[in-house]
Nucleic acid binder design. Sequence first.
DNA 1: AATTTTAACCGTCAGCGCGG
DNA 2: CCGCGCTGACGGTTAAAATT
Length: 285
Amino acid sequence: MSKCGRKKYIKTNLRQMTMETIESQQDGSVTDSVAESESAHTQTQTGQNSVPTLAQVSVAGSGTGRGSPTVTLVQLPSGQTVHVQGVIQTPQPSVIQSPQIQTVQVATIAETDESAESEGVIDSHKRREILSRRPSYRKILNELSSDVPGVPKIEEEKPEEEGTPPNIATMAVPTSIYQTSTGQYTATGDMPTYQIRAPTTALPQGVVMAASPGSLHSPQQLAEEATRKRELRLMKNREAAKECRRRKKEYVKCLESRVAVLEVQNKKLIEELETLKDICSPKTD
DNA sequence: AATTTTAACCGTCAGCGCGG
DNA sequence: CCGCGCTGACGGTTAAAATT
């Protein structure tokens, strides 16, 4: 099924593409970013390693489900045009804010130059390097915000419970019911066990207070300690992943609004240019 | 109405960079 | 060097929309 493939294609490229879009907007060069982005295209679940061209995806709005594929032409201040492949996010009924902005969920830059597609076989290690060297969303956004007034900053993480020592016993406990906007992952039998634990104590189950390291003797104690550490690590990572996704969403929103602003700006400039052209070259009748 | 498709969301793992 | 946080990738679930 191509479901995952498509999803992951977008996921994989989202950050890379959007960063490059912004970068190219800043220095006015698009070609390099497109070439570089190519490397990120090569890995897809479905084995389709070809880049979706504009021709393939230009059926704007014909998609199904909650989002529809679309393509937007974003003109850069430099006058260059970037094809932005995106998804029209069908807003949840109650969340419609600004239709203009909503239409532009920047996902990928469709590449029309087929030469770049040829040997996109960059080995996974190198690709990973390229991807992982990106600074964090928070950094990126904060840098952006320092450049561009009006771009919101992602707040620095506050120490959650001020005054409480970073002790295991005070760590946030995952609630037994998962609360999401769509009501997903409520307490059902399908839930992973760690999610349906009732918070009977201040500690997540399985997180046993650590014995002092020196007092661990029996293999059983060692095993318990290992389990405890693992549980703790998983819990922390779970929270970190949530936070990371939240930041990412914020980051994407920020980029979306930036695109919208730049589109308006660009439109104005084009109009201005047309006006000036008219003035400078009056008809010679 | 039943089935299929799609998007959104989640937890986990792996790997990297950074600070101590 | 080690521990930790961050994030891409992956596989899974669910709800909603589209299709049959």
